[in-house]
Design a protein around this nucleic acid. Structure first.
Lengths: 110, 110
DNA sequence: GCAATGATTCGATAATTCTGGAATTATCGA
DNA sequence: TCGATAATTCCAGAATTATCGAATCATTGC
């Protein structure tokens, strides 16, 4: 993932409603949620949610699929993963040791 | 790391100059860079850099240490790590399989 | 075709963030 | 103490982002 794309993704997640929306979608799993369901959970007006979703879409963090009148939205884990990878690489250059405590083959220390 | 803290960190990194600054600092290693060196690399006015550094400081992503007239700034890897951990946990809940392809003990699939 | 429902776009206002010159603070060396 | 250097704060204008009502688009069922 290049810097510009990462920046877009970061901008998209760096906002309360959008981060919250994304977390709901992640929690919902591969099925995702309809825009309406998401709106209920976030309790914000449709137009506002649409604007936020557009931002997340633009960053490639969510995908949607229309089913009749309902649009089902789901988190794009792959893209999220690329972001995490970008951050890991760009956080760890020159200090790998202190930046990989999450890896499953290591003890989670402290 | 709680959501609010993560949000602060994301906001701090979601800006071109600041992301760039942070990457320079990471690349510089534990020694970090002086504010002046950072300013040279980013090529932005002192006041602007100060504002960005304050943001990064507030998010706990950088630490500084005064040495005479010079303030040496370095990336806080631990904090960055916590952010990555937050994102990993909040990306992977309910979909762990597709969110850990980076782990060194797994094949990267697809 | 028409009414109803789910979602989006439009457009205007409010709020926030970014930027950078000028003034200020801190430290050093002579 | 003075002058120079490193960095910061102050503050105001510019630019961007967020918010959301109203209008619109898309789809369904009748």
């Amino acid at each position: 993932m290049d810097t510009l794309t990462a920046l877009e993704a970061l901008k998209s997640l760096a906002q309360e409603s959008r981060l919250s929306a994304f977390r709901w979608l992640v929690q919902a799993g591969p099925e995702g949620l309809s825009v309406g369901e998401l709106r209920e959970r976030l309790d914000i007006p449709p137009a506002t949610l649409s604007a936020h979703l557009n931002q997340l879409r633009g960053a490639g963090l969510v995908l949607d699929q229309r089913a009749g009148r309902v649009i089902r939205v789901r988190a794009d884990y792959q893209r999220m993963n690329q972001l995490i990878q970008f951050l890991t690489e760009n956080c760890c250059a020159g200090a790998a040791a202190s930046c990989l405590p999450i890896a499953p083959n290591q003890e989670k220390k402290s």
